[in-house]
Computed example of a mutant assay.
Amino acid sequence: MTVEQSKTTTIPPQKPLRVLHVTFNMGIGGTEQVIRQLIQGMAAESVESEILCIDGHIGPIGEALQQAGVAVHKVTRKQGFDWSLIKVIRKRLRERRFDVVHCHQYTPWMYGWLAALTTRAKVVFTEHGRFYPDRYRYKAMLINPVMAMFTPSVVAISEATKDALVKYEFIPRKKIQVIYNGIAPLSRDESEAQKVREELGIPQEAFVAGTVSRLDPVKNQQMMLRAFKKFAETHPDAYLLMVGDGPDKAILMELADELGIGDHTLFTGFINKPQHHLSVMDVFLLSSHTEGTSMTLLEAMSLGIPAITTRVGGNPEIVVDGKTGILTETECVDSFAGAIRQLAGSKQLCEDLSKSSAKEFTRKFTQKQMIKSYITSYEGSRRSNTP
């Protein structure tokens, strides 16, 4: 090769990363929100993404992504161990020549890991949260260390989740990386928030506590209602705004009536883009028995809404007690009610927590930070593919 030829020789550009996300479904939940944030944010980084739902249905978040042009597929997993599902995943990995199969939660990891064994795709496994109460599965003692050994990237969404993977899943601590969930910050539009307030019939000066969450027993919202009842004894004009849907909705509505707070407890159902409802809230409430990294808590923080959360899971890693919000014990109605009363009684405290909350969000929990960390994991996996 001559000098002139060498000057014109260029290294061919690396092909875009191709990622298959394997998950249960794309319904309503934190895992699904993370997948959406990853796919939408990584499109700008030239990462090509598809989703495979293994529980037979796609769900509203998946349908919204389909409408935006993302390929979302579904397959119905059979009862028991489904060997045919491995073949389905393996076929898709080979045909579409995926670089990475990103498995969300344990069961998708098991199937994705087995399917990838004879393909070029490398496995990334993210644990998004834990069951309540958590439990040992002694078969995991034999299987999981082997799976982890041959999984290039094992991710937990909080230090608490990492601890659970070590304790209950027998995955070596040194193998697990913590990547906090992140979101694109929400923007506050006071005119739209005012419309929501008027539509809900909330008086202009009324104090509003609220939550955006799946209405599910693990979210412990019966305790939230009882705490709001106690708070309302001294603040009868306050409102509780419950944004979300789920299996506990009818139970919670009935309990609100029984407690005598039904007229001031507003159930909106699922709201796809809740930023204007969040903007109505003076305080954000999260009463869960367990959490990884709550996406709706991050949404509230991005808007500078002070939070009251239970001291469980990843919550203490997100909320700095007394600085960006208030932490309480999970079953203590009195302390939860007292925290609401404390914030309702101090405008200055709310303002201080609001400013600190927004700063903490920007420091640790943005979509850009999460995407950067995952792309590093993906690229590392692809480099291990290169001969």
Rank of each mutant, 00 (worst) to 15 (best):
E45G: 01
Q37M: 06
A71V: 12
G30I: 01
G80F: 04
H73Q: 06
G80Q: 06
L85S: 13
L65W: 00
N25Y: 08
H21L: 02
I58Y: 01
R77I: 12
K78E: 14
P60C: 09
E48K: 13
T23D: 11
E48Q: 15
V47D: 04
V88T: 14
Q14G: 02
L38Y: 04
G62Q: 03
S49D: 08
F24C: 02
L20V: 10
G62H: 07
K91T: 14
I58F: 06
P12E: 12
L38I: 15
K78G: 09
I89V: 13
S46F: 08
F81L: 14
C53Y: 07
V34A: 04
K78P: 02
T9K: 12
K74N: 11
P60G: 00
C53N: 01
Q14S: 15
K15V: 08
K91C: 09
G30Y: 01
L20Q: 09
K91R: 15
T2W: 03
L85K: 05
A64W: 09
C53T: 03
V34Q: 05
I51D: 04
I51P: 11
M26E: 05
M42S: 15
Q79C: 07
L20D: 03
I28M: 07
G30F: 04
A44P: 00
G56K: 07
I61M: 04
S49N: 14
K78I: 05
Q14K: 15
V22K: 00
G56Q: 13
